[in-house]
Amino acid sequence: MIIDKQINGSELTLSLTGRLDTTTAPELEAVIKENITGVTNLVMDFAGLEYLSSAGLRVILSAQKTMNKQGEMVIRNVNETINEVFEITGFIDILTIE
């Protein structure tokens, strides 16, 4: 998985390409942890995301919890496969998906 990181003031945009799964979820977790301080807008761009497993979902959930305290989080460009994952796990009700 490739994580492209862009910081614009207090907005952090993370664009993911590839698969967010058991092996790659820790990478995303580390990038978020390193960069989350002071962020009020977290944008995750999933245009290039092909696969999302429970390991990835747990990292997303953790990010959402953090952002609930310090601002907001938005997920963009969700394809059909990923959207189905959000639907069946109930994440669709927790996340803000644009």
Binding site: S53, S54, R58, E84, I88, T89
Partner: peptide, 11 residues
């Protein structure tokens, strides 16, 4: 089983 994993598995 973890609920998230189970939901994905069932699907």
């Amino acid at each position: 089983m973890d609920m998230i994993s189970y939901a994905l598995l069932k699907n």
